[in-house]
């Protein structure tokens, strides 16, 4: 019986070692989140929902701001509306990812009406927020490479996808090492029109009727600003989208800019809104900036920050 037990124990050990080594093969093609949880703690971050995840490129910001923030190394830690609207879950995730003793950091917080709205019957019931029970809520370790916690609890595909997606000649997306989520979808006008139509449908039929302003989320936005101000400079940014979507946002929360301006004043942080120049950018699907436009917006944000520092 001893022989049997020894052998039975040996196999799981071999398996654990194999899996641990195999997990190192995970990269930006593995999925849209994994890499964000394998990187170390960060002192300069871009936060928000998918518009920021896809639209703000850390490398561009770094290149412009390196003169005013020497050694700056921005990291995009924005996810999606279902995961990273401002609230207790995202707040805890930011705390976990934040490098606290790194000197002066930079934090760009993307704000939209949706990131301070919620879908439950009572929009201030944080226990019913969409992100509850999902990736950021489930995860215990945010800075571990390989992140076994994520792979065990959150990675829903077969583990072969950790490596196999990179063999795809035309991958749909790539998560860069700096956290920027690049969409590599076809950009011909027909493809864009189809995706935009789908996105408008989603906003009209799902987000717009379901979401309502949540003062709880606004509280957490303020708490996030207060937390990050202890570790560096905070900037609020509203990214552009196509006019039809912005119109819906205006209808949903006509007071949005007033609310954010009030928060900005309260915490003495700058607020940059790009919605007035929405027509000068191009989009992957109407809501998310296309790569080149993202590059432009990132440069503009960095220049505005730089300008604010020199004033």
């Amino acid at each position: 019986m001893k022989r049997f037990i020894y052998k039975v124990v040996a196999f799981p050990i071999a398996l654990i070692v194999f899996f641990y080594l195999y997990a190192f093969l995970g990269d930006g093609y593995s999925d849209e989140y994994y890499l964000r949880f394998t990187s170390p703690k960060q002192s300069a971050m871009i936060l928000g929902i998918s518009r920021a995840a896809q639209g703000i490129q850390p490398a561009i910001i770094d290149s412009v701001l390196s003169t005013v923030y020497p050694g700056i190394d921005m990291y995009n830690f924005a996810f999606s509306l279902g995961l990273s609207a401002y609230g207790p879950v995202y707040y805890r995730a930011i705390q976990q990812k934040l490098k606290e003793d790194a000197g002066k950091g930079v934090f760009i917080l993307e704000v939209t009406p949706w990131s301070i709205c919620a879908a439950p019957a009572n929009p201030n019931d944080s226990s019913a927020f969409e992100e509850e029970g999902r990736v950021l809520d489930q995860l215990h370790f945010f800075n571990m490479n390989p992140n076994i916690d994520y792979l065990f609890n959150c990675y829903s595909s077969p583990y072969i996808n950790l490596v196999i997606n990179k063999l795809d000649e035309h991958p749909f997306s790539l998560l860069h090492n700096d956290g920027w989520f690049e969409i590599k979808a076809p950009m011909d006008s027909l493809a864009i029109a189809n995706r935009t139509e789908g996105m408008i449908y989603l906003y009209q039929n799902d987000f717009y009727p379901r979401f309502e302003f949540s003062s709880k989320r606004l509280e957490y936005l303020e708490a996030t600003i207060a937390l990050l101000q202890q570790h560096g400079d905070v900037y609020l940014v509203r990214l552009p989208a196509i006019a039809k979507i912005l119109q819906m946002e205006k209808q949903k929360m006509p007071q949005f800019d007033i609310i954010i301006n009030t928060v900005a004043k309260k915490y003495n942080v700058p607020y940059y809104s790009f919605i007035d120049s929405c027509n000068s950018f191009s989009y992957v699907d109407g809501a998310h900036l296309e790569k080149k436009s993202g590059c432009r917006v990132s440069t503009d944000i960095a220049n505005l920050i730089k300008g604010s520092l020199s004033n």
Binding site: K7, F11, A14, L15, F18, Y22, S156, P158, Y159, I160
Partner: peptide
């Protein structure tokens, strides 16, 4: 035989659906 067991275990881990 043990190599075959290990190989199948690896296949299960890598290609399996653990939902």
């Amino acid at each position: 035989r043990h190599a075959v067991y290990l190989f199948i275990l690896f296949i299960i881990v890598v290609f399996g659906s653990f939902r």
